[in-house]
Design a protein around this nucleic acid. Structure first.
Lengths: 81, 81
DNA sequence: TGCTTTGATACGCGATTGCGTATTAACTTG
DNA sequence: CAAGTTAATACGCAATCGCGTATCAAAGCA
């Protein structure tokens, strides 16, 4: 299951999905990142003005990371093999 | 060549690399995204407080997108095959 | 040697962030 | 049912965004 992330909304949805999959509350995730629960709430809601750092911190706290791919798949992951 | 993006700095470096690979100036990329050249400059410098939307817009303007992967590679792209 | 292009940086501005703290609605559960 | 949990939302605050506009050094080129 590869999740594409093309927008703040998709990023928020993904963070929420990953958080729930790991049985974490917003408060617990927030604690790991040293941010407030309210910040997680906004991040998950897809707030476009959320700071980039918050997203990366959340992904790191969830054991995830992002990889860049070309939109048409013409390059990028090809090079893995 | 798989580019991992784990931080604002990596994101900035990647945007710059992709932009230059496409022979674009900061001004041209900025025009495509309807932001100022100065905003691109800050994005590429790795400013952590840059808005998420700016990053996604830049990637879209460059024909790129992000895919989520687990940090240990235990899941995610495995599912592609 | 100029002239242009590129990218970093600045000022004032309005908007919005995340913070600390707190409240509240919707659930869950004993 | 009462108590607790979870997540959305709010207020005042300091900080910083991106905007419009602009400047300037470095580099490229005529």
């Amino acid at each position: 299951m590869v999740d594409l992330v093309r927008s703040p909304r998709m990023a928020g949805a993904l963070v929420r999905k990953a958080r729930l999959a790991q049985d974490l509350t917003q408060k617990e995730l927030a604690a790991r990142m040293n941010v407030r629960q309210a910040t997680i709430s906004k991040l998950e809601s897809g707030e476009p003005a959320t700071r980039m750092a918050v997203l990366f911190d959340a992904l790191a706290a969830l054991g995830l990371e992002l990889a860049v791919t070309a939109r048409d798949g013409k390059s990028g992951f090809q090079d893995m093999f």
